[in-house]
Design a protein around this nucleic acid. Structure first.
Length: 271
DNA sequence: ATCTACTCCTGATTGC
DNA sequence: TGCAATCAGGAGTAGA
């Protein structure tokens, strides 16, 4: 399931398309999380991609007067093909055509979306999102401002894209384990040290996952068709009943904010 | 204002 | 064996 590292991996694979001309986009199925604007998309013709980058969990293509925003949802993947290759697969929804290549957006569960935004609309979209976790704007002081008065569980807070972007369920679990913080700890109950450790843990976990090409559970492959290798490094996610890698206590599973949460009841005490 | 619960979707897995 | 119920979860939204 694409979280920040998976999206980052996808963006890196798309970098060769920078400076190329997007000739047009085929719509195989407009019914994604939000119905794609077929009229707007069909009006596109030969636009030069100036920049491709990641913002939160979105792949953003920047053009002279617009931004294309693609969210992979939970099961979205991209597949790069030669232009002459007309092969399609089940759940292919959009095809971005270039002179000699194309890339295909495939999303089984249709939780992803694709939007074309004006510069103004993009600014508005961007400013509603929290800071990038790997930027220096995401630090202990910032996290303190965001959590010190909150009664919500810290796990819900770090998964809130207004607080910090890109941290989904897998990495939230891993980061809390690394920082030795119980997922149900209220934001206001965190100590100064815990906030510091949590910020550091989020950065470390995400950086390592990016280096390994993301996490492949069932769904994620890079656009070149490779698996992400972070899964073998997961310490608690999906490991209920297994021994804690630190202390051998059995890993517990609870539901926090409707999401499966894994932790070690010995290493991660509520404070 | 803040927080929680529900909702969309499909396929794999589990249960009877 | 086969069909049905359950689970997975990003993030918008409705409701508390």
């Amino acid at each position: 399931m694409p979280e920040l590292p998976e999206v980052e991996t996808s963006v890196r694979a798309l970098k060769p398309f920078e400076g190329k001309v997007l000739e047009n986009i085929s719509i195989l199925n407009p019914k994604l999380r939000w119905k794609v604007d077929t009229k707007k998309i069909s009006s596109i013709e030969n636009l030069l991609i100036e920049n491709i980058f990641r913002r939160a969990k979105c792949i953003v293509m920047q053009f002279k007067n617009s931004f294309h925003v693609l969210h992979l949802g939970m099961t979205g993947t991209l597949r790069i093909q030669d232009a002459g290759n007309n092969r399609t697969e089940k759940h292919d929804h959009l095809i971005f055509h270039f002179h000699d290549k194309c890339f295909v957006f495939n999303d089984t569960r249709k939780f992803g979306y694709f939007k074309i935004l004006s510069i103004e609309e993009y600014k508005n979209f961007d400013c509603k999102l929290g800071p990038e976790p790997l930027s220096k704007n995401f630090n202990a002081k910032y996290l303190e401002d965001q959590t010190t008065k909150s009664s919500a569980a810290i796990k819900n807070l770090i998964m809130d894209q207004k607080v910090v972007v890109g941290v989904g369920n897998i990495y939230a679990n891993e980061a809390l384990f690394t920082a030795k913080i119980h997922p149900l700890t209220k934001g206001s109950h965190l100590s100064h040290d815990e906030r510091k450790q949590l910020v550091a843990a989020i950065k470390t976990v995400l950086t390592k996952a990016i280096a390994l090409g993301g996490t492949t559970l069932k769904d994620f492959y890079t656009p070149e068709g490779n698996k992400g290798y972070f899964k073998i490094k997961l310490k608690v996610y999906g490991k209920a009943g297994a021994p804690c890698p630190n202390c051998n206590e059995i890993i517990s599973k609870i539901i926090v904010g409707q999401r499966a949460s894994f932790f070690c009841s010995s290493c991660q005490k509520i404070s």
